[in-house]
Design a protein around this nucleic acid. Structure first.
Length: 287
DNA sequence: TTCCAGGCGTATC
DNA sequence: GATACGCATGGA
């Protein structure tokens, strides 16, 4: 990975990374696109960019922009603004999975025809390595919900606490005191998860090193965590890329393309394949 | 008005 | 173990 430090910015030339496809594909809910015509874009007044996002990993903020390379369509200049080399190496390299070569991954996946289409459809998807607790919370909130509303609930939560609340904070709440979030029936599930973590009954660090089945079972002892949310917590919060969350959209993918199961070429990396497929099935009609 | 959204708990068989 | 139904909320 090649990068340079320029003042308070980190600049890297990176292939297989598109901000829209990675930050707005339903894996994370705290990234907001910066409209070039809004006053938000003022902070990027001197920057030459195509698209930019601001957001967080847990409570680490980041402003990130992208400028497509003129000579290579698969390549972009990615700039992480107002950060340090220390945070880049300590937080963001890991978060954006920059040590993984996605061109190799996509080449492997593309043996399968549907996977090939999905990879070509959004070649700039990367798996985000999110915080365990943040991912668990996010996907508890996600159940029977749509993405704009998930973002809204999480945004109200973070605004209220002045950042993403730790589980001790949520553990002390009640359904009534969390009413401001308008999370509906999910509020009691968040509280249960937080209380189980606060009591030490469940430890996400321990779960992250369990075998997949034990990890699933342990997570599913939390109220409101079923097979799908457990799988998402494992995939997005613990980088268990062999986890394979099946929601309504992936169910459609399986019925339409894989009635006999997933192809062998995604074995061991089902979760990453899932991210390409999820984005593909949801968006292929309107592109 | 009705249907749906990155599901799950509960009741019932 | 399978299936049916209710659930908070808000946009289409």
């Amino acid at each position: 990975m090649n990068y340079k430090v320029s003042g308070n910015d980190i600049i890297l030339v990176q292939s297989d990374f598109d901000l829209d496809e990675t930050l707005d594909c339903g894996q994370a809910f705290r990234w907001e696109k910066i409209d070039k015509n809004s006053k938000d874009a003022d902070i990027l007044a001197d920057v030459d960019f195509d698209k930019a996002y601001k957001g967080f990993k847990l409570n680490s903020p980041l402003l990130i922009s992208q400028k497509k390379s003129a000579e290579n369509s698969n390549e972009s200049q990615i700039t992480l603004h107002n950060t340090s080399e220390h945070d880049f190496l300590g937080i963001w390299v890991d978060y954006f999975d920059l040590e993984t070569d996605y061109s190799v991954l996509k080449r492997d996946f593309s043996i399968d025809e549907t996977m090939s289409c999905a990879c070509k459809f959004a070649p700039g998807i990367r798996m985000l390595k999110q915080d365990k607790w943040e991912a668990l919370c996010s996907f508890i909130i996600s159940q029977n919900n749509n993405i704009p509303r998930i973002k809204g609930i999480i945004s109200r939560m973070c605004e209220y606490y002045g950042g993403f609340p730790d589980y001790e904070a949520i553990a002390g709440e009640t359904v009534e005191s969390l009413a401001f979030m308008r999370a509906g029936f999910r509020a009691k599930y968040l509280i249960d998860a937080a209380q189980r973590l606060a009591s030490g009954e469940i430890d996400l660090n321990i779960i992250s090193s369990m075998d997949l089945d034990s990890a699933r079972k342990s997570l599913m002892t939390i109220k409101g965590v079923g097979p799908k949310v457990a799988e998402c917590a494992l995939l997005y919060g613990m980088y268990r890329i062999d986890a394979f969350p099946i929601d309504v959209w992936i169910k459609r993918v399986m019925e339409e393309y894989y009635p006999n199961g997933l192809p062998a070429c995604v074995k061991g990396r089902e979760g990453i394949a899932q991210q390409y497929l999820f984005h593909y099935i949801r968006n292929k009609e309107n592109k």
